[in-house]
């Protein structure tokens, strides 16, 4: 039986993991390579590396780190941040990424999803979308959640799936950082219109939030989080045990 996936997300700037992390037994807590290895050893099903570098120097450093990680960590690796062209796909795939996540790049140029899917296959193209309710309507936000694009989120997601997006990361701005649980209403709305895997993001504050997510919405395939894993508030191995005890298929 296919398992529900647990995915830690690492924000990387100038070659270092941005959010502070604190683990026993992990010496260099802001080394992306060390942290990736730690997560892999502790049961993470996949990793997301998000490049939040602005400079080209930083970008080179990011791809170097990606190469080093992919040569040591043998679980699926998704890379996002600064993906605007097919050449950007090529750059990170050559360094060992398995999937590439597009967000603002797809909003600027919706053709990007189609072109990349044709070249690398649907399974390689992940649409990441930041969604917020505005007057009761789900709207797509760009620039890290700062700018309302005016796009209606559900139809945008559907359009990208039709263009070849093989997986969707739904990040709810409304629940992100609140730590009160995932945005079940928003995720349900997305699951009802797409048949590709849906990854929930934004809002996880404790292990139980993942249980509620998978119990309430069996169509959600994976849960993604950053700080609760980085700060050790939720240990992935404990979360996997809790999932199994709750009857949710988990890889242990």
């Amino acid at each position: 039986m296919i398992t529900k996936r647990i995915i830690p997300c690492l924000d990387v700037r100038n070659g270092r993991v941005v959010k502070g992390v604190n683990f026993e037994g992990l010496q260099d807590v802001s080394s992306p390579v060390a942290l990736a290895q730690y997560y892999s050893d502790n049961g993470a099903d996949e990793l997301v590396f998000y490049d939040i570098t602005a400079s080209s120097d930083g970008r080179k450093l990011f791809t170097d780190i990606l190469c080093e990680t992919a040569s040591k960590v043998f679980i699926p690796l998704t890379v996002g941040g600064g993906i605007n062209t097919v050449a950007d796909f090529d750059r990170v795939l050559k360094c060992g990424a398995d999937k590439v996540s597009v967000n603002s790049g797809a909003i600027r140029n919706p053709q990007l999803v189609y072109d990349a899917a044709k070249l690398y296959g649907d399974q390689c193209v992940v649409l990441s979308v930041d969604v917020k309710r505005v007057d009761g309507v789900f709207r797509v936000f760009a620039k890290g959640g700062r700018e309302n694009t005016g796009l209606e989120a559900i139809s945008w997601i559907k359009r990208c799936v039709d263009n070849g997006a093989g997986e969707i990361v739904v990040n709810s701005i409304d629940t992100d950082g609140v730590k009160g649980g995932f945005d079940l209403e928003m995720l349900d709305a997305v699951c009802n219109v797409v048949s590709v895997p849906v990854i929930a993001s934004g809002g996880a504050g404790k292990a139980d939030d993942f249980i509620t997510l998978f119990k309430t919405l069996p169509k959600v395939d994976a849960g993604l989080a950053a700080s609760i894993f980085h700060f050790g508030e939720v240990k992935i191995s404990d979360l996997k045990n809790l999932m199994a005890e709750s009857g949710i298929p988990a890889r242990r």
């Binding site: 039986m1 296919i2 398992t3 996936r5 099903d45 649907d122 399974q123 093989g166 997986e167 048949s195 590709v196 895997p197 395939d221 994976a222 890889r251």
Partner: peptide, 10 residues
């Protein structure tokens, strides 16, 4: 069931 079959399976 979703296609592709993607993820960890036993």
């Amino acid at each position: 069931y979703k296609v592709p079959h993607i993820g960890w399976n036993a």
